[in-house]
Design a protein around this nucleic acid. Sequence first.
DNA 1: CTGAAAGCGCTTACAG
DNA 2: CTGAAAGCGCTTACAG
Lengths: 340, 340
Amino acid sequence: MTLQMIADRLGLHVSTVSRVLHAKPGEGLRAASSPTVERVRKLADELGYQRNPHAMSLRTQRSNLIGVLVPRLSDMVLATIYEGVEEAAAEHGLSTFVANTRDIPEEQRARTEMVLARRVDGIIFGDAHSDSGFLDEVAARGVPFVLVNRQAEGHPSVVCDDYLGGRMVAEHLLELGHEDVAVVAGEPYASTGINRTGGFADRFREAGLPIPAHRIVHSRFDARGGRAGTERVLASGPPPSALFVVNDFGAIGALGALRDHGLRVGVDIAVVGFNDTPLAAELPVPLTTVRSPMHEMGRRGLRKLVRVLEGGRAETELLRPELVVRASSDPQQYSALMKH
Amino acid sequence: MTLQMIADRLGLHVSTVSRVLHAKPGEGLRAASSPTVERVRKLADELGYQRNPHAMSLRTQRSNLIGVLVPRLSDMVLATIYEGVEEAAAEHGLSTFVANTRDIPEEQRARTEMVLARRVDGIIFGDAHSDSGFLDEVAARGVPFVLVNRQAEGHPSVVCDDYLGGRMVAEHLLELGHEDVAVVAGEPYASTGINRTGGFADRFREAGLPIPAHRIVHSRFDARGGRAGTERVLASGPPPSALFVVNDFGAIGALGALRDHGLRVGVDIAVVGFNDTPLAAELPVPLTTVRSPMHEMGRRGLRKLVRVLEGGRAETELLRPELVVRASSDPQQYSALMKH
DNA sequence: CTGAAAGCGCTTACAG
DNA sequence: CTGAAAGCGCTTACAG
C-alpha cells in the first residue's frame, strides 16, 4: 500500500495524493478539488493506507520519535512517569524508545548515543545526575531535551516540588511532637532525594531542632536500599522516634529492617515515605507518604519537549505535592486500625 | 554525516563506502581492497558516521524495530520482563517500542495497529488473553510474533511453568498440614492465573482435599485487586488456614485485608504469593512466593522472536519456577523473626 | 576492485 | 487544480 498505488488506481499523480492525504488542517482546501479529495480519501480508507514512516522521516528529516532514558523501568515511579510520557506521545503522533541506564554514567552515554543514532527528535531524561556535566555536553551538541522527575541546573524539567514535599513531612512530624528524627535520603546525585531531604532538614532547623549529620544516610531507591539505609540509622545510635524515607519502595524496605529490630511501626516509630505509589495504602500498616503526580509529570514532560521542538521557551515546572497521612505516622489512625 | 560525504572526501563512490562499512562478516573481504577498506573505516570513525536508519529501512524493507505490548509497565512483573526484552534487543541491534494496553481489547487492537504502522518487524505480546481470537487474527495477517508471560493456544511463547509453580505451592502447604485453603486467582483470561490456580487445585484434589468453588476468587493483578479478592474470600465463610495469591503485588494487598480482619500473617493464616519480586523478601513479614525468571523470560522472548524472523521454528518454552519459603507461611522462620 | 544506476516511499517548491 | 521533478540516504545486483 503506497501513495503510488492509490495514484495509479485513480489516474492521479502521487504528489496530488500526498497533498490530499497529508495536508495540514489549515491548507486542506488547496490540496485538490473537492471531488478529487473525496475519491482519494475514500480509496485510502478502503485500502487501509498507512503512510510509510521511514520514507517520511527520510524526506522531512523529522522522525516523530522521542527517546526516553530512565534509571530502571522496574522502579514503579519511573514506570508510571513513562506511562504518562507514552500516553501523551501517542496523542501527539509521536512514538517513544525507552531505555534503562541504571544510573550508571557509561550507560547513560551509551543509551543516549543509541537513541540519537535512531534519529529521535528529542530526548526525555528521567535519570539526571546533578553532579555530572553530561547534560551540558548534550545541550552543547544542540540536542533538544527536557528532564522529568529529577532536575539539573540550567535545563528545563518537570518535577515534583520535592523541597516543599520534604517540608510538609517535617511539618507533620513536628506537629506530632517528634524531636529526634532520621532520614534515609536516597542517592546523593538525585535532586529528588536532595531536595526532599533539604526541605525536611530546613524545616526542622527552623523549629530549633537541627538534624545531626549521622541521622541522614544515603541509600539506593529500592526496597533493599531502604532496608540497608535504615540498618545504618539504627546502628549509629538509639532509634529515632520518626523516620523519613524519601521514596515509598525504600520505606517498605525500612519496614522490614524496623521489624527485625523489634520496633513496631506506628507505635514505637513513625515512618513516612514519598510518592504515594499504589502499594502505600495497601500495606499492613498503611504508609504515610507524599503524593507526587507521577503520571502527570510524564505527560507534562512530553508536552514540554514538544514545545521545545517547536522552538518555544521552556522553564522548569514544579508540580504540587500532597501529604497523605496514614497509620504509619498517625496514632489515631493506628489505633482505629487495631480495633478489630 | 552521510555515506556520500565520506565518499566525496575519499574520491570513492558511495556504493563502495556502503559495501565497506556494512559488509557482513563473511563477505567483508570482497568489499574493497584492504587499503581502501582502511581509509574508509578510519574516516568514518573520525567523523563519527552513523548510518541513517530510515534510509536503510526504506531500502531494505526491514526496520530492526520490535513492538512490545504489555498490560501496564507500572506492574513490576511486566516492567522486569520488558527490561530483559530491551536488553536482548540492544544486543541484537534492535530497538523496541513498548505500549500499555491495560488488558483492554480495544487498546490491544489500537496499539497493535500503531506499532504495525511504525513498521515493526515483529511483536512481543505480554498481554495475551486466552479467551480471545485476536492473536489468531494477527497471525492470519502474517505478522511475526511471540508471547511472553502469558501463553495462548497455538502461538509460540516463553512463560514460567505456572502449573508446576501452583503445584509447588500446594505441596508446600500440604506438608504444613493445611486443609482449608483459598486462592486469589487473578484475571480469568490470563494463563498465568489460570495455570497457577490449576496446578494448585489439582494437587489438593489429588491429596483428597478438593477446593470448593467459593474458595477461589478472581481478581485484578495489583495490590488493590489482591485486597478486594481477599475481602471476598473472607466474606464467604470462616477464614481459611492458608491463602494463595497468584502474584506478589496481589499478596501485598491481601496482607492489608487480613490485618483489617485481625488475622496475623504467619500465625493465624499462611500467605503465599508468586513471582518473588524484590519486595517479597523485604516485607515486615517476608513473603513465601514462587520465583519466576522474569528478566530471563524477556531475554528469551526476544531471542525467540529473532528466530521466528529468521524463518525458524518456534515452540512454547516453559521456564522453571522455584519455591522460596519465608516467614509468611513457615512457622519456624516466623518465630525466628520474632526472637528480638 | 570499483563505479554507475535504479529504486525504496515519500514531500515540496515550482510550473502550467 | 494537478503534474513533473528532484531528492532525502541508503543498498544491491550488474557491468567493466
